[in-house]
Nucleic acid binder design. Structure first.
Lengths: 218, 218
DNA sequence: ATTTATTTTTAGATTAGTCTAAAAATTGTT
DNA sequence: AACAATTTTTAGACTAATCTAAAAATAAAT
């Protein structure tokens, strides 16, 4: 069993490894964890002693296979709880993050197994992020930013890049939600703004929006 | 906001106040918390500084009104989560305690409000203990031990005194569950054993059993 | 290739929560 | 009332997780 703090560090390293595949720097981790570099060094030493990460002084840190599985277990719990909060308790998708941050640390294999079943084995969380299975496998799909599509193309909304409450509320207000089909009717070459068809209506959206919406093209 | 440890102490004091209404001794608390008396003294000082308890050296401890409300909030969360685990996730009533011990510390007013609604505002947990409302009021009812009833009397099973897995499994095996009606057909004056009617069948139970089952007589 | 700037680590201090061992206060017994 | 037994508190130490300030290592720049 690992402490709350250890689990949060593992999660942060997991996410940062996508950006820094050769090793996550102490400063990057300090930034992500909103803490000081010296604290990060201390924690990395602990994680290293527990064989959760590979660490060489001044060379940054990477998860071990054991560390990766531990991080993914926490992420799995986080995303399942988010589905619970939205689907069962009626939370809006911009309200779930901080509660899920707490719930993800509850320790009970049976709890998460039964929750998964209760939710009917969801594959994605309310923001469209994939939920890993208990072995740590993520679903992969041809996920692209809406901004990358051309006039005439279409796809299903599967997630957001920016998950700030402001953006999520903008989406709600305009009827954009996960699972909705979007057709690109026009694309303005000057500012990349788009005219899209959604819910049977036409809607004008700027490049800021289309650059933060993930789409699955069949 | 209070720490996990502080909340657990408040809960323990709340429960012990029923047994020691004039003040909970340091040793009693140490026993309940499975810790040392010196640790208890330290914690009591912290709780006292935060106005959660009234404390005079060597005189034991009692909850302040603020402390009582805080303890009851935690108990409310514990019991609501137990209902969730049993009713929604299919846990047995002897499996829920340790998971609920973790879930009770999640901080979110909205979460507990929506969970209460989702569970349809339950009044008792799976062991029959009353769930306080958000203001800290418990339902009260004419709750008696089955052993106190006489031949010919009857009532509804509403809770257990001993909530050990062994006892709960015994009850399951014999079809005794919350909400079931029990009629006392015979009561043996020699050993207080009873012949009861339950689920349409007759069942012989010893005094050990009837002394640990709470019954609501209408 | 030195010097400068940046990043990272160490050293030492702090807080919450715990412990052991010993001292102090209270209670019980003759 | 005085001694013994019990309970409770204090004193001092430990761990996990953090911090600040300073030292050491690496990277960048002239």
């Amino acid at each position: 069993m690992f402490s709350l703090s250890e689990e949060n560090y593992l999660k942060a390293i997991f996410h940062l490894e996508r950006t820094y595949p050769t090793g996550v720097s102490t400063n990057a981790l300090a930034e992500e964890m909103s803490t000081k570099a010296s604290s990060v060094t201390d924690m990395i030493k602990r994680l290293s002693e527990k064989k959760l990460v590979a660490y060489k002084k001044y060379q940054g840190v990477m998860l071990s296979e054991f560390g990766r599985q531990t991080a993914v277990d926490v992420i799995r719990k986080h995303r399942l709880w988010e589905v619970f909060l939205v689907d069962k308790l009626g939370f809006a998708w911009d309200e779930v993050h901080e509660v899920a941050e707490q719930l993800e640390h509850i320790k009970s294999d049976k709890l998460i197994k039964e929750l998964d079943r209760f939710l009917d084995f969801p594959k994605r969380d309310p923001h469209g992020d994939p939920i890993p299975d208990s072995k740590g496998n993520f679903v992969t799909s041809n996920k692209v930013l809406l901004a990358e599509l051309k006039k005439g193309e279409s796809g299903i909304c599967i997630g957001v890049k920016d998950s700030s409450p402001e953006f999520l509320q903008y989406l709600d207000k305009n009827g954009i939600a996960l699972g909705k089909e979007i057709n690109i009717l026009e694309k303005e070459s000057f500012d990349q703004s788009m005219l899209i068809k959604l819910n049977g209506n036409e809607l004008k959206i700027s490049n800021v929006i289309s650059s933060n919406l993930y789409i699955k093209t069949s």
